[in-house]
Design a binder for these strands. Structure first.
Lengths: 232, 232
DNA sequence: CGAATACTTGATAGTCCTCAACTCAAGTGG
DNA sequence: CCACTTGAGTTGAGGACTATCAAGTATTCG
């Protein structure tokens, strides 16, 4: 197994430039940039939902827990994504940084009262985010309910690759996953062992190549991967 | 096994009264009431999303299919619920009537352009529906990804009972399910055999009672059922 | 360089699916 | 009104897939 060529690798996710307008908002008062360490919480399930957030760099995972500790990861949020948007009084998910991350916090009143929102565009983004999240959740339900471990894993790789391509503009040779096998497992409704075995299986089939750096995965045959993903 | 007392049974779902204002909307032109027969489509995945709908009576299921026919039911919509709301050009789900149903159709422009919407309240309902659907989808993901067949089934019964109670105001003795075992299975990510076995198991445990009319289920011990549902 | 962590691999078990037969309820036609 | 048909639901046996438990290996970080 050869080490993936570093120069052709796409970093996942890209750093979002902090624009002048974003900075202006930050300084205006209602918003603030926050640094979040690896595995650190942005907010926890059940807490009062006072703010919502935008990812500036890094990746945020939102998840729910059952009382006995079983976890389901709802989504991974990459730079540009909003998260922590709630209809009710409290957060219904926990949000944590997958690695080091920067997020920008927005006071919630901006959502409740669009007329007084500092930025009308932001209010629109909030509604748009809800719709996009709903679409993703619906797509994820069929994965969780009806796909096999192989199909889940293939779908995951395709999905992550697509997000990387979208951020950079062109297909990349190597996928640099920001999250651990445990995160992947809890996202796909599997165990870490099954994720590991399935990736090995995909490597043996020549579809992917696992590098020495375990979170780097080279996609050797995207169309084969897409076939395995069990499309709608 | 005794037959459930009919007089104490709650019909699921209740008929929503057609209010004067609703009728006025209908006659105004942009909307129209439509009768949908059992298992008949309201719209299909991939069709242009020209309208969205409100359930007046009966139950509508929205679902997605994989290419090989595996199905995942996203949600059951009861009277008062909106469905068929899309961000993009096409429906991403198929909507069918579980039994006989009546739905009211709204032209989509009302959503795209809230300023020209006949009813501003409706535009707000549309956004609210998206948020509620997102919350339900997130709750459903942990069920699909992390719960056992027993926990899934118990959760389903509790959920359906809660919706019935909400519609009538008080807890009912008997749950009259409008959907088949196949629908339940495709909603929970199980097979019909597993659903059937699990219900039998719950009956043997004295938690529920299955009547001769198979879709009527009497809840004998709601707290036991809630315990089995594996709460957050 | 060593310890801790992340990941992989193996053996085994359990849950749920598949295939098949059977029961039951409801609807049909004589 | 009843036998027949049909579809829905139940039950059983066996098997496949994934989880669990347990090492073992590799990588990362101090």
């Amino acid at each position: 197994m050869q080490v993936a060529a570093v120069q052709s690798a796409l970093v996942f996710p890209p750093i979002l430039p902090v624009s002048a307008s974003t900075l202006r908002q930050e300084m205006r008062g209602p918003t603030a940039i926050r640094l979040v360490g690896k595995d650190e919480e942005v907010f926890a399930e059940g807490e009062p939902a006072t703010h919502y957030f935008k990812v500036m760099s890094g990746v945020i995972r939102t998840s729910k827990l059952l009382c006995d500790g079983r976890r389901q990861i709802d989504a991974f949020h990459v730079p540009g994504d909003l998260f922590g948007i709630e209809r009710g009084a409290d957060y219904r998910m926990t949000a944590e940084a997958v690695g080091e991350a920067r997020v920008i916090a927005y006071r919630r009143c901006a959502l409740d009262n669009p007329a007084t929102a500092a930025d009308q565009t932001l209010a629109r983004d909030v509604v748009m985010t809800a719709f996009v999240n709903l679409e993703r959740a619906q797509e994820h339900m069929i994965l969780l309910g009806r796909k096999s471990a192989l199909e889940k894993t293939a779908t995951f790789l395709i999905e992550m690759a697509a997000r990387m391509d979208g951020a950079r503009g062109a297909p990349a040779a190597t996928l640099e996953l920001p999250m651990s096998r445990a995160d992947i497992a809890d996202y796909l409704g599997l165990t870490i062992e099954t994720v590991s075995r399935t990736l090995t299986q995909l490597e043996r089939a020549g579809v992917i190549a696992l590098s020495a750096v375990r979170r780097n995965i080279r996609l050797r045959n995207r169309s084969a991967l897409a076939d395995l993903a069990a499309a709608g």
